[in-house]
């Protein structure tokens, strides 16, 4: 009898867990939407309500998220560009079409690799920092302190990070485009014996402004995802330092997963 009931209860437990996880996921999604709505509200109406989103806070965040990420974005972009050129030339050589590598590299860098790599990097670097910062502030009552001072925490902590990321991620992506193409050009010029300027001209001829906009549009979307995932995880921290660590890791994993899935959906909708 007991063996039978445990056999019955196992699938039931599984369904129950699935239900709980679904409810939890929908709750988080709702929470993220509310935070996004509130951030936009404070950005638009903060000044009227005598609680403006400070330019200095946005600039500080932009410095942290964007400018300080330039070296690592440059290194990764240069590497990815060269890697694409290596693989592209190797593949196209089978058809004797290695001179067409410019087209493949230009499109894949601007439409796919730059926004994706920059997004993943910023999620790992700044999304996690945001989650850790908010989580620590929550458990040390700093968020409560802001509230009782009459300073809305969303206006003070979330809105500046949102603006900074939305501005800086597309700019970083644009920079990554340039550096990745430079990396590809340097390799191609050595391997194929073409000059850098010829590579640049071929690239410009191959690219349409829509390709750049496709990549930048993705970067904009990734920026919102990174901030919202970071903030939601930070705001849900409980249980001290261990909780901060757990939610910081979760924010990186969720942020990167959200970026990759959104990237596929974006490509599916706009590329076919």
């Amino acid at each position: 009898m007991s063996a039978q009931s445990s056999a019955h209860s196992a699938p039931l437990r599984w369904i129950s867990r699935l239900g709980e996880a679904t409810v939890h996921g929908v709750t988080e999604l709702g929470f993220a939407s509310v935070l996004l709505g509130q951030s936009l509200f404070w950005l638009l109406l903060g000044r009227q309500r005598r609680q403006p989103v400070r330019l200095s806070a946005m600039a500080a965040q932009a410095m942290e998220i964007g400018v300080l990420a330039l070296p690592i974005v440059s290194v990764l972009a240069l590497t990815i560009g060269a890697m694409l050129a290596i693989q592209g030339i190797y593949t196209l050589r089978m058809f004797g079409a290695e001179s067409r590598v410019t087209l493949g590299v230009a499109l894949s860098v601007t439409r796919e690799f730059s926004p994706l790599i920059t997004g993943i990097l910023v999620a790992g670097r700044s999304g996690s920092a945001l989650a850790a910062r908010l989580g620590t502030m929550k458990i040390s009552q700093e968020v409560d302190a802001l509230t009782v001072m009459g300073i809305n925490p969303v206006r003070y902590l979330v809105a500046p990070a949102l603006v900074a990321t939305v501005v800086m991620l597309p700019l970083l992506t644009l920079w990554a485009d340039l550096v990745a193409l430079l990396g590809a050009g340097l390799y191609a010029s050595v391997e194929l014996g073409i000059s850098l300027s010829a590579f640049a001209q071929d690239t410009l001829a191959a690219l349409h402004p829509n390709d750049l906009l496709h990549g930048l549009g993705k970067a904009l979307l990734f920026a919102v995802l990174i901030v919202m995932v970071g903030v939601v995880n930070g705001a849900m921290v409980t249980g001290g330092a261990e909780g901060v660590g757990r939610m910081t890791t979760r924010s990186v994993v969720h942020g990167i997963a959200a970026i990759v899935i959104t990237d596929m959906l974006f490509a599916f909708v706009l590329t076919r």
Binding site: R49, R50, Q51, S140, Q141, D144, A145, T147, V148, M149, G150, N152
Partner: peptide, 13 residues
Amino acid sequence: TLLRQKIGVAFQG
């Protein structure tokens, strides 16, 4: 918000 400006809070930590 105006009311909160008339109160001060010193938290435990």
